[in-house]
């Protein structure tokens, strides 16, 4: 197991390297550089600019620049934001928590819905419940996130006036008070539901198939013939087998969550990393953009690492030693 872990982490190193080279290349292709982020006025003396470029090492060979860039990144220095004039790390820090909160809420809600419905429709196949659930998964599987989010906003925010349509908290609420907490919660409801309700479909379909496949297997028949009550057959024997892969998909979900957060945060003007990304793109603030891409790529790599570890821990057949 330790060997597997070590090798799996070792595989990540070249992946990280290629990711960083890719982002560095993209960053170099972006107009503007570290200098344009620091100059106060655009009409500075060309001689001063040349001096500054020299000082910042922008005329160095590309590999030297790469090494310097990656060295800084490893030490937590992702450069300065051009528009906000503050270090990118500070800028991200504020919003990281918002995005993490949204992601965690989305995951929890989607599993809280998907697990009971997936299991129930697999257990009672062709019941009316199963038919409704299947219908629901067909619709949610086909619906694009941005349309669904707009519809949710239109319905629950503008028509029914139940939840706010944007932001992460009421700006007048005082941090620490109950009001603040409630405001934070109500602002979270719609973005969370938009993402979560659509994310359930694959999990439900997967669980349903798993349960259908497992319930006809010999070990389940054995359990039944031993006199294990039906509810226990499900809780002890079938679910244990079906849940493990679900748990492991958590890590793979991260790539999807990052993509989803761009849409959801943009629609609900939720101040997270996704919105920061779009804003920075629009303002051509490319230090922030490349930092965000790097962070997302890193998070996704970590996620697959996590998933692989969980999967190999629960399923010895996958483990390669």
């Amino acid at each position: 197991m330790l060997k597997f872990l070590l090798r799996r982490i070792l595989i990540m190193i070249p992946q990280l390297f290629i990711l960083s080279v890719l982002i560095f290349t993209l960053a170099k292709a972006m107009p503007g550089d570290a200098l344009s982020g620091q100059l106060e006025n655009a009409h500075a003396d060309p001689k001063v600019i040349a001096e500054q470029r020299q000082k910042l090492g922008l005329d160095d060979p590309i590999q030297v620049q790469y090494i310097r860039w990656i060295n800084h990144a490893i030490h937590g220095d992702l450069g300065m934001s051009y528009t906000h004039k503050i270090p990118v790390t500070d800028l991200i820090g504020e919003r990281l928590w918002n995005t993490l909160l949204l992601a965690a809420a989305t995951l929890i809600v989607s599993y809280a819905i998907a697990i009971p419905f997936g299991v129930a429709s697999g257990r009672w196949t062709n019941s009316w419940l199963d038919k409704w659930v299947t219908c629901y998964t067909y619709f949610t599987y086909a619906t694009p996130l941005f349309i669904f989010a707009i519809l949710m906003m239109f319905l629950f925010s503008f028509e029914l006036n139940l939840f706010p349509s944007g932001g992460s908290v009421d700006p007048q609420a005082v941090p620490g008070t109950l009001n603040y907490f409630i405001s934070k919660f109500t602002h979270l409801v719609l973005p969370t539901l938009s993402g979560a309700l659509l994310a359930t479909s694959t999990t439900i379909q997967f669980l349903r198939n798993e349960v259908i496949d497992t319930k006809i297997q010999d070990f389940v028949a054995t359990a039944r013939s031993k006199g294990v009550p039906e509810s226990k057959v499900y809780s002890r024997h079938i679910l244990r087998n079906s849940f493990l892969p679900i748990a492991a998909f958590l890590g793979y979900d991260i790539t999807g969550l990052i993509g989803g957060s761009v849409f959801v945060e943009s629609i609900y003007s939720y101040p997270g990393l996704g919105q920061l990304f779009l804003d920075s793109i629009q303002q051509r603030d490319f230090t922030v953009v490349s930092a965000l891409v790097m962070i997302s790529g890193f998070a996704a790599l970590l996620g697959t690492l996590l998933s692989d570890i969980i999967l190999s821990a629960v399923d010895p057949r996958i483990r390669i030693d």
Binding site: Q15, I18, L19, A29, M30, G259, V262, F277, I281, A300
Partner: peptide
């Protein structure tokens, strides 16, 4: 393939679209 699947696809496409 494993590597490309992990990349933050949406973000990179957006970056490409702008640069």
């Amino acid at each position: 393939i494993d590597f490309v699947l992990v990349l933050p696809f949406l973000m990179i496409v957006i970056v490409c679209a702008t640069i």
